[in-house]
Every structure is written in structure tokens, then in C-alpha cells.
Amino acid sequence: KRLSEREFDPDIHCGVIDLDTKKPCTRSLTCKTHSLTQRRAVQGRRKRFDVLLAEHKNKTR
């Protein structure tokens, strides 16, 4: 699936709103397109961004 077609989940996706499409970014939490500050500011996550990021990195090892 293309990035734009993915169902957005704030707990596994970057989530920064794309200015062109007005939709949240569906790249992983480790997205290189958006800064850490931008990704931390995303609302609606179950846990703090840093906790989710650490969990994500542990899963992908």
C-alpha cells in the first residue's frame, strides 16, 4: 500500500500533518522527514512519544 492509503495509527506512525495533503504522516515513528519536536507534538498517542519510540526500536531489533 502507498503511504497515503495506510490507516493512520498515532501509536505506530509519525503523525505529523502534511501541509499538502492535510493528512497525518503514516511513516514509522522513526520518520526522517519530520523532526523529533514535530513528532513529539502529535496528539492522540496512548503513551509519550519517547516511550513508544523506545518500544518500536526494541521490536525491530
Rank of each mutant, 00 (worst) to 15 (best):
R6K: 14
K59M: 13
T21M: 10
S28K: 09
S28I: 07
E55A: 06
C14W: 00
C31Y: 00
E7N: 13
E5L: 12
R45K: 01
H13R: 02
V42W: 01
D9M: 09
T26I: 14
R46A: 11
K57W: 13
P10C: 06
T21G: 08
T60H: 03
I12Y: 12
K47E: 14
T33Y: 06
R48D: 15
L53S: 03
R39G: 01
H56I: 07
S28L: 13
A41M: 13
N58L: 12
E7R: 11
S35G: 06
K59H: 08
G15Q: 00
C31S: 00
K22W: 07
N58M: 14
K32Q: 06
L53G: 02
T60Y: 04
K23C: 13
S4K: 12
R40E: 08
H34C: 02
R40M: 11
D18E: 12
S28W: 08
L19W: 08
R40P: 01
K47S: 09
K22G: 12
P10F: 10
R27F: 13
T60A: 11
E5Q: 12
S35F: 01
F49P: 03
R48P: 14
L19Q: 12
G15R: 01
T30I: 12
K47T: 08
F49W: 04
R39W: 01
T33I: 12
T37E: 15
R27E: 14
I17L: 15
K22P: 07
V16G: 01
G44D: 05
Q38S: 10
E7F: 13
K59S: 14
S28Q: 12
D11F: 03
H34P: 00
T33K: 11
D11K: 04
T60G: 15
T60I: 07
L53Y: 07
T26F: 07
I12Q: 14
K32I: 10
T21D: 09
R2C: 05
R40I: 09
D18C: 14
D50M: 03
K23P: 04
C31T: 00
H56Q: 09
L36K: 12
R40K: 10
L29S: 01
T21A: 07
R40S: 11
R39S: 01
R2T: 14
K47H: 08
D9L: 06
K22Y: 11
